[in-house]
């Protein structure tokens, strides 16, 4: 089947074609999903190399389970967001040298000495990514999924294994935390007061 025809198919259908051995489906799916996973992994890790590793592993897992994929049970992207977040969390745990209660991490303070230093010479996206990295993992994940990936709260609840209310709470706290950190960077970011 030509590339253009495949591009009109949804992820589920493409994954079936992939499992049936269609190499064009492999190319279309990779081109469609890799940027999504990479962007999400980068926003969660703040580290390009680590994001690439996570992206490669998440997609490998998808390819391997393709023959057993059950159409209609879950969106491919939802599954990938969940796997990506789990891989990032596993990486963070390893770096921290053991199990960590992610929700026990305190909310960021607006006068962290390192945060404003890091953001001073960076562009807006770097500032946002740096600010995101100051959030607790779950808050960061919820904020990224809600406000950057544009998912709905029920979709995020499914990905994070939470209730919708918990998601709302996480995104609200995360957004407040970001605002506190970025408040220091208003001038650098071009968001100055209007007066």
């Amino acid at each position: 089947m030509p590339f253009d025809d495949l591009s009109s198919l949804d992820d589920d259908a493409l994954l079936v074609l992939y499992a049936n051995g269609d190499p064009m489906a492999a190319r279309v799916l990779t081109g469609r999903l890799a940027p999504v996973v990479m962007a999400h992994a980068y926003r969660l890790t703040g580290n390009r190399t680590e994001a690439e590793d996570v992206t490669q592993e998440a997609l490998l897992r998808l390819w391997k389970i393709a023959p057993e994929w059950r159409q209609g049970e879950a969106k491919v992207t939802t599954w990938l967001y969940r796997v990506t977040a789990n891989l990032v969390t596993d990486g963070l745990r390893r770096r921290r040298g053991g199990s960590v209660d992610l929700d026990a991490i305190p909310e960021p303070e607006d006068d962290r000495p390192g945060a404003d230093q890091v953001m001073q010479d960076r562009a807006r996206m770097d500032a946002l990514n740096a600010a995101l990295m100051t959030l607790p993992d779950r808050q960061r994940q919820a904020v990224v999924l809600r406000h950057i990936e544009g998912l709905t709260n029920p979709e995020i609840a499914e990905i994070m294994d939470l209730g919708v209310e918990a998601v709302e709470s996480l995104t609200a706290r995360g957004k407040r935390g970001l605002a506190k950190v970025l408040e220091w960077q208003k001038k650098n970011l071009g968001y100055q007061d209007d007066d």
């Binding site: 992939y18 051995g21 190499p23 492999a26 190319r27 799916l29 990779t30 081109g31 890799a34 940027p35 999504v36 990479m38 962007a39 980068y42 926003r43 390009r48 994001a51 690439e52 992206t55 490669q56 997609l59 490998l60 390819w63 391997k64 393709a66 996206m125 946002l128 950057i148 990936e149 544009g150």
Partner: peptide
């Protein structure tokens, strides 16, 4: 941030495509 392209290089995309084809 939503409008910004993913930081995905061509080399990386090629590598990921090869992975997909290898598993297939």
């Amino acid at each position: 941030a939503r409008a910004a392209p993913a930081p995905l290089s061509e080399d990386m995309l090629d590598r990921l495509t090869r992975d997909a084809l290898d598993v297939q």
